[in-house]
Design a protein around this nucleic acid. Structure first.
Length: 858
RNA sequence: GCCGGGAUGGCGAAAUUGGCAGACGCAGCGGACUUAAAAUCCGCAGGGCCCAGAAGGCCUGUGGGGGUUCGAUUCCCCCUCCCGGCACCA
């Protein structure tokens, strides 16, 4: 065994201490305790010479325990917060609780525990979990939305909205979830089902409710999406779709014959008024108000309409609107096309919905798919009024295939408008309608006002009174908050639980002093989350929701620097809070138009190809992961396993790999931290032997990669793998270290930087290493390492050599070699020679530092 | 139907400006250490073919088809499939 000769200078694996296992639990609980002692550790500064940075994760609902989705979300935010701290920013990184909501009431019913108690217990538990996971929150700013100190400002805002005419009460058809036993906003209905109960079909009820006039801001909400370049395109698109702006024309058709109680005109919304000379009928939604007049003395028609309504409802519930065959009934009534005086039959059809436009359309079979299909079925006239514009003016225009729906045609058979292009005709015809008083250009939105009344207990009481004499009376500002009473009997049926509490309901009218009843509905919990992030700026203010100056410091002109959360809030929370910000701005409380400058939506955590859920039994508990592998491992794995915007498939074997890595880092520092060595704190010498240069080079390359991938690309997975590569190089250098070929100051430099590079991702281990290395300063206050391009530079590089685009060889050259030298070396390579033998070289391409390609002919 | 995002080894993934495809990790295989196992450490590893075997060599490969280019995971055109949003939207 001749290689044994080396064993005097080489440390064999057996000689290295390998039984020093990293006891994550011991280390992490030690640091968690220390951090617990230091309340101001992660506190943001109110006044600072440093630049502000507001990083925020969406606040959780205190359901009982964190799940892996939370861990992933907060691991991203926490890494960012720590990174920005180390980069010298004044970081605001707060946390709170979206603590009103129905689950607390359900728990109250099933466990006989008051909602408050249940909620506060959950908060305590989840807060302890967050602390054990090591998230760096400024707990002095904690916001709990179910506390009167918070919700009184919901009430205050409501009064302001009411003053401005932006909160109003109206009886209308609303979505009712029979499981939640409450009304839902449109945003909370998904495919006709409750957003919380996928199996529960939402019913329609006629109720009197409070609404917030979000539609006042519809256009601004749409336009300002353009400003949100820091938001995912996906979210902007979803909001654009949700707002659903549509530009068109409103046209009034007069009813022919007897006037009915519902009115004398049918108002129609169309985006294609240019096709109106091709209209051959008017179609009403079965729930259109005029229909009642038509069916009053016509029982067969009434029955047919009921049939249509039932069909529509069924189709909506089944989620296949659009696939149902079109049906309709002829009312044998007529409406008059105001452009040409033509009498058009009025039909009632199942493909017209009441909640879009006016619930009535003009039917133009020649130029609309649906109208065409309907006209074919009922043999209605199909009249061509738009022709394609011929590319070649000489060419005779062919009859287009029907229906011809292109927007860029030219009008025919359209009276005075014939010959105009569609675009010109729409403009002219809308203007004429307005001038003659039978219509005008109009914009409609899909977005509807936000219904916020909830027939539930655990929410913010709506601060309104009903007086027999004075009607609706707002609670005076000085009487806020209207406290949500405790000890309320909770049942899901029988309307608002508050309605059964006489001490709450009965009060006096502030106007006349007579008896009045309080509003017993509470607010949608999305009100709470619409402005909570402003409260973090000034969480203990008891005379205003927040101080404007303070909010302006943290929000600046563009809002929260980075907001992180799940894409499921793309429409709900994120559209409501944009609305709320615009409203507060108009109140003069803010100068920013938008709450969030940059938004990041992380992917879901899935397991075995499916979203984690109790029913599937594939839930991974964070507590269990912390107990088995440690908080650092759970956090690091959730950053490493996938880029943050993609779904993450949780694999237990994967987190084991991370645990191994953390142990590897720990053991290296265990063996190589030598803070008592006399040379430990000396500067790193300029002239390093080759093995030491290799470490130094890799170190600086790693600093560059982690720094670039962090803010530049948000690829935490590659940040982590870069550090892994560094650790692999350190391990490969252990023989050199044992031979004392690595100067001690470099050894220190490498390990210090290793701890710093890990600090945002694995804070516990990083702090432990920092201490092992004899460092006493605060890790978070230590600047992020700087990358030195000189030190990262390779002395020699390997250049691949291609012949006609195929890899044929490699040459090793000095990093600063000239093109001529590289090409000479490349051509001298044996394999390259073989590949070009007998051929003529046409071209030699050298991409400096990257590669050579030799192109031959023949 | 419209809009947005995807598709790369056995698996999670990487390739930043068009320049060595598969870094890093998991699982796997081999070795060291151990009485043994665990742990640890070192190494191998896209697929196929040639070669007894190894060394080595050849071919092939990023959902499919075409194009631009000396060179394409990357750019362009067409198509398939998957995920998400909106939708008889007038």
């Amino acid at each position: 065994m001749p290689e044994e000769e080396n064993s005097k200078t080489t440390v064999t694996p057996a000689e290295r201490p390998n039984d020093e296992r990293y006891d994550a639990h011991r280390v992490e609980t030690k640091w968690a305790e220390r951090w617990q002692q230091d309340a101001a550790l992660y506190a943001a500064e109110a006044e600072s010479s440093r630049q502000k940075y507001y990083v925020l994760e969406m606040l959780p609902y205190p359901s009982g325990a964190l799940h892996m989705g939370h861990v992933r979300n907060y691991s991203i935010g926490d890494a960012l917060a720590r990174y920005m701290w180390m980069n010298g920013y004044n970081v605001l990184h707060p946390m709170g609780w979206d603590s009103f909501g129905l689950p607390a009431e359900n728990a109250a019913i099933s466990n006989n525990t008051p909602p408050r108690e249940w909620t506060l217990r959950n908060i305590a538990n989840m807060k302890a979990q967050m602390k054990r996971l090591g998230f760096a929150y400024d707990w002095s700013r904690e916001v709990t939305t179910c506390f009167p100190e918070y919700y009184r400002w919901n009430q205050w805002f409501f009064l302001k909205l009411y003053e401005q005419g932006l909160a109003y009460r109206k009886k209308s058809r609303v979505n009712w979830c029979p499981k939640c036993c409450t009304v839902l906003a449109n945003e909370q209905v998904v495919d006709g089902r409750c957003w919380r109960h996928e199996d529960t079909i939402v019913e329609q009820r006629e109720l009197e409710q409070w609404f917030l006039r979000i539609t006042k801001y519809a256009d601004e909400l749409l336009r300002d999406l353009e400003k949100l370049g820091g938001w995912p395109e996906k979210v902007r698109t979803m909001q654009r779709n949700w707002i659903g702006r549509s530009d068109g024309t409103l046209v009034d058709f007069k009813l022919d014959g007897a006037v009915v109680p519902g009115g004398s005109t049918i108002s129609v919304f169309t985006t294609r008024v240019d096709t109106i000379f091709g209209a051959t009928s008017v179609q009403l939604a079965p729930e259109h108000p005029l229909v009642a007049d038509f069916t009053r003395y016509n029982q067969p028609l009434g029955a047919a309409v009921q049939q249509l309504i039932a069909e529509q409802r069924k189709a909506k519930e089944a989620g296949d609107i659009g696939l149902v065959e079109k049906h309709g009934v002829n009312t044998h009534r007529y409406a008059i096309n105001p452009y040409n005086g033509e009498k058009l039959p009025i039909w009632i059809a199942n493909y017209i919905v009441m909640d879009y436009g006016t619930g009535a359309i003009m039917s133009v079979p020649a130029h609309d798919e649906r109208d065409y299909e309907f006209a074919k079925k009922y043999k209605l006239e199909i009249r061509l009024v738009i022709l394609p514009i011929a590319n070649d003016p000489e060419e005779t225009v062919a009859e287009p295939a029907l229906p011809f729906t292109a927007h860029d045609g030219v009008l025919i058979n359209s009276g005075p408008y014939s010959g105009l292009t569609s675009a010109d005709a729409i403009r002219k015809m809308s203007a004429d309608a307005e001038e003659k008083g039978f219509g005008k250009a109009t914009v409609t939105y899909r977005l509807k006002d936000w219904g916020i009344s909830r027939q539930r207990y655990w929410g913010t009481p709506i601060p309104m009174l009903y007086c027999e004499k004075d009607g609706i009376v707002p609670v005076p500002e000085k009487d806020l908050p209207v406290i949500l009473p405790d000890n309320v009997g909770i049942t899901l049926t029988g309307g608002s639980p508050l309605g059964r509490v006489p001490e709450f309901v009965n009060t006096t009218c502030p106007k006349c002093g007579g008896p009045a009843r309080r509003e017993t509905d509470t607010m949608d919990t999305f009100v709470d989350s619409s402005w909570y992030f402003y409260r973090y700026c000034d969480a203990h203010n008891d005379h205003a929701p927040f101080d404007s100056k303070t909010a302006q410091y943290w929000f600046g002109e563009r809002g929260i620097d980075q907001y992180i959360g799940g894409v499921e809030h793309a429409i709900l929370h994120l559209i409501y809070s944009r609305f709320w910000t615009k409203f507060m701005r108009d109140l003069g409380m803010l100068t920013n138009d938008e709450p969030v400058e940059r938004l990041f939506t992380q992917g879901m955590v899935i397991k075995d190809g499916a979203k984690m859920s109790k029913s599937l039994g594939n839930v991974v508990s964070p507590d269990e992961m912390v107990a088995r592998y440690g908080a650092d491992a759970a956090r690091l794995y959730s950053l490493f396993a996938a880029p943050p915007d993609r779904d993450l498939d949780w694999q237990d074997s994967g987190i084991e790999g991370i645990q191994r890595f953390l142990g590897r880092v720990y053991r290296f520092v265990m063996r190589n931290a030598r803070p008592d060595h006399p040379g430990w704190r000396k500067p790193v010498p300029d002239d390093l032997p080759a093995p030491a240069r290799a470490i130094q080079r890799k170190l600086h390359q790693t600093i560059k990669r982690v720094s670039d991938d962090f803010l530049g690309r948000w690829h935490f997975n590659t940040c982590v793998s870069a550090v892994m590569e560094l650790v692999n190089v350190l391990y490969a250098s252990e023989d050199s270290i044992a031979q004392e070929a690595i100067p001690v100051p470099l050894l220190r430099d490498a390990q210090r930087n290793l701890a710093l590079l890990l600090a945002p991702f694995a804070p516990y281990l990083a702090h432990e290493l920092w201490e092992m290395l004899g460092e006493t300063s605060s890790l978070l206050k230590t600047p992020w390492p700087k990358f030195d391009p000189e030190l990262a530079k390779e002395e020699e590089i390997v250049i691949p050599v291609q012949v006609n685009g195929k890899l044929r060889g490699r040459v090793t050259v000095p990093a600063d070699a000239s093109e001529q030298f590289v090409l000479e070396q490349a051509l001298a390579d044996e394999k390259v020679q073989a590949a070009i033998a007998g051929k003529r070289i046409v071209k030699k391409i050298y991409v400096p530092g990257k590669m050579v390609n030799i192109v031959t002919s023949g």
